[in-house]
Structure formats: C-alpha cells, structure tokens
Design a protein around this nucleic acid. Sequence first.
DNA 1: GGTAAATACTTGTATAATGCAAGCATTGCT
DNA 2: AGCAATGCTTGCATTATACAAGTATTTACC
Lengths: 137, 137
Amino acid sequence: MLCSGKKRRSKCPVTFALDRFGDKWSLLVVRDLMFRGKETYGEFLESGEGIATNVLADRLKCLETDGLIEKSGDPENKRRILYRLTDKGLDLAPVLLEMMRWSAKYDADTGTPQQLLDSLENDMPGLIEKVREGMQI
Amino acid sequence: MLCSGKKRRSKCPVTFALDRFGDKWSLLVVRDLMFRGKETYGEFLESGEGIATNVLADRLKCLETDGLIEKSGDPENKRRILYRLTDKGLDLAPVLLEMMRWSAKYDADTGTPQQLLDSLENDMPGLIEKVREGMQI
DNA sequence: GGTAAATACTTGTATAATGCAAGCATTGCT
DNA sequence: AGCAATGCTTGCATTATACAAGTATTTACC
C-alpha cells in the first residue's frame, strides 16, 4: 500500500480515497479508533482480525503521514503512545457508517445490534454527531 | 484479494465490506459502472488508473460471485459481454459518494466539478436517486 | 471462403504487499 | 539489578499485483 506521497493513479476522488485507505487494514484501524475507543498499538493488535505487527506499524505510519491520525506520548506512562483521529480522520465517519449500513443489509450474519441498525437507517446525522463527540454508538 | 467464500476475518460489518471491496481496484470498477456508463471489459481497461488485465478479470469474477455485478451477452455483438450493477452493487452508491465528498474536501487537486461538489454537500439523496435511475451525475 | 480486426480473456514471470515468528529498545515496577 | 510491558523492527515465506505475451471466439472485409 502506498502512503500518500507516491504518485497518484489519477485525479478521480474515488481513487484519491482508495490511495489512502483502500486496503485490507487501514479502515479497521480507523474503526477501532472511531467506534471502539482503542488508542494504542497493543489495542489495535488485539482486534479480532489479526493484523500483523509490521503491517500495523506501517499502516499507522501511513495514516499519520496522510494526516488521518496523530500520535502523542501518554504523560502517565511513557511506554504508551496514544493514537487518535484528526478532524480529517473523523470526517471518514460517513464512509464507515455507510459501509456498515450496506453490510448490515447484505450480511446474513452481521453482528450489528438492532439499535444501531435502526440508527443507520433512520438517523445517520445523529450517529455522525455522536462520533464527532467521541461517544460510543 | 479474497472473493467472498473464503473464511471471513470477523463478524464486524466494516470487515464484511472490506472483505468484498477493500482493495485497490474493486471500487474503481464499481465507479466505472456507476458514474461513467462503462459496461465492458475493454472500457474498464481504458480507465486512467491502468488496471492489469488479469487483475481486472479476477475482480470482475469476484464482484460477480459476491453479487455486486452481473454479466450478460450483448445481443447486438456476440463478442461483447456487458457488465452491470445489481441492486446490491447500486446500494454502494452512498459509500462511493461519501468517499468522493471526503476526497473533495481534502484533495487540493480534486478533479471534481463544482456542481457535483455542491450536490455532495447539499443533496446527497438526489445524487443517490440519480444513480439508481442510471443517470450520469 | 479466407484473412484480419475486435473483444475478452489466460498464462508466465517479475515485483510488491502481506503474514508469521522472532528479536530489540525504552520505560516502569519491585 | 532484574523482569514485565509496550511499541515497534527484522528476516523470511506466502500471496497479490504488474507487465508482457498469447489464446479463443466473433465479426467485418475482400
């Protein structure tokens, strides 16, 4: 996967987006930050999908280079590094939520709670607002 | 990239979506079908990003297996095979459009016409309706 | 009817991305 | 000082993608 900076494939906005997060892992890190309250390397690693350590390190670097996340030392524990979404990263909420809506519609075995399904159908703006405020959905 | 059918990484709806089109090329084929009126192998190949022939063939197979597109012979020209989006594929319009909106906001050199930018900000439902009706946006 | 062009692929091989196991560096705890 | 926690890096195997070429079927032309 290319970090932004390498030559872009075209001027298309879909391509621009895919060049940044169109791979198997980037959006799962964003998901962990956006919906699951995760903020450290170790927490991302624990996510059920099993990302490899080197791939995670690379994705974090790319996401930071592209300005979707930023990192900072934890003042309480200097071993820990805290990652969080920038505004640019938070603005991916509609993309993620629409993906979730699509999957909920077509995945027979979706693990999505009914209340969230309802919100995805009837209150997308409310969900986006919650994400921006850092609330869990 | 896995066609659906291989084991899924998790039950998460984001993962479900990424397992189907979370790669460098799948959504560009969907884009060509959805926004550019393309419908043949040759037309997809001509898109500026330069997908390799074997990768295109594989992506078309996967998208068809997953029920996002379907193909049919052209009665007028038996050499041609026509691909088009199913309802399941058309339902990706909100995902694509939100990606475009995000890119338009953050890509300094987006090739997106002003009228479309306005619609992305102010009339997403209208755009989705147009896509469903097969109109160009 | 024979030949060439058009269309949709497949095949073979090189390069790049990902997966996996292990190891290293820094900080914190005792 | 020693050990655990945390966040990585490194080396190598496997998989995906890129690139160049070739094949199969249908159509158009002479």
